[in-house]
C-alpha cells in the first residue's frame, strides 16, 4: 500500500488573524518532512489540519492510499499523532489505555506489538500502573506507543522530543528512521536536532 499526502492551497485564519496561506506541498513515503518556524508560526495548527481535527478556511488536504482518496471517516486508521496537547486517560493503566484504543479503532489488541513497543520505550515494567502515576517523560513515551500501536501510514510528530531525556530522544530518532520506510513522517519542531532528521522542510512563516 502506497500512501501519499498533498496539501493544496491550505489557508488558515483564527478570527481575522492570518496564520498561513496557500501552502502547497506533496509528501511521499520513505521521507521525513519537517515543519519549521518560531513559536506561534502555525506548525501545530498545520499538523492538526493534516490530521483532520481542525478545519482549514481554504484549500484541500488529500490523503491517498494506492492513488485512492481516503474518506475522512476512515482517516484515523492511517494516522499516528504525537503532540504536547495530546492527553491519554490518567484513570487507566498503560495496558488498559492501549486495549481501549485498539477496540475503539476496531483493530485486534496485538499483544506482541504492544509488548515490543512498551519494551522499546522502557515502559513494560510499568504497564499496569495508572497513567496518573507516570512522569511527564513517561507520558510522552506513552504517546508514541499510542501513535504507533496500529502501524500508521502517516506519523505526525509535533514537538516529539519535549519532556524526553537523552535516551528517550535517541529512541524517538530510531523510531523515525524505522517508520519512514513504510510511512510518511512529519515532524513539527524548533529543535535543530529533530529537524536534522528531515529530508525536506516547510518553513511555515514563509506562507504569510
Amino acid at each position: 500500500m502506497i500512501y501519499t499526502l498533498a496539501l493544496e492551497n491550505i489557508t488558515k485564519y483564527f478570527g481575522r488573524q492570518l496564520i498561513f496561506k496557500n501552502i502547497n506541498f506533496k509528501f511521499s513515503q520513505g521521507n521525513v518532512y519537517g515543519l519549521a518556524g518560531n513559536n506561534g508560526s502555525g506548525k501545530s495548527t498545520l499538523t492538526k489540519i493534516i490530521a483532520g481535527v481542525l478545519s482549514q478556511n481554504k484549500g484541500k488536504v488529500l490523503h491517498k492510499i494506492d492513488n485512492k482518496e481516503i474518506e475522512a471517516e476512515k482517516l484515523h486508521s492511517y494516522l499516528g499523532f504525537v503532540s504536547p496537547y495530546l492527553m491519554l486517560y490518567d484513570e487507566f493503566t498503560a495496558n488498559e489505555n492501549l486495549f481501549h484504543f485498539a477496540k475503539i479503532r476496531g483493530i485486534k489488541f496485538d499483544e506482541e506489538r504492544i509488548k515490543y513497543l512498551l519494551n522499546e520505550f522502557n515502559l513494560y515494567r510499568r504497564r499496569n500502573d495508572l497513567l496518573k502515576a507516570y512522569s511527564s517523560g513517561m507520558k510522552q513515551r506513552m504517546k508514541f506507543i499510542f501513535a504507533l500501536q496500529h502501524s500508521p501510514k502517516l506519523l505526525l510528530l509535533d514537538e516529539p522530543t519535549s519532556n524526553l531525556d537523552e535516551e528517550g530522544k535517541s529512541k524517538v530518532y530510531k523510531i523515525v528512521e524505522n517508520e519512514k520506510e513504510n510511512s510518511v513522517v512529519i515532524i513539527a519542531s524548533n529543535e535543530s536536532k529533530d529537524l536534522e532528521l528531515c529530508s525536506k522542510l516547510i518553513k511555515v512563516e514563509e506562507y504569510k
Partner: peptide
C-alpha cells in the same frame, strides 16, 4: 476537561 477530546478524535469516526 481532561484534554482527551483530541485523543478520541484521533481514534474514532465522529459517528462512533
Amino acid at each position: 476537561e481532561r484534554g482527551t477530546t483530541l485523543t478520541l478524535q484521533l481514534i474514532a469516526a465522529p459517528s462512533t
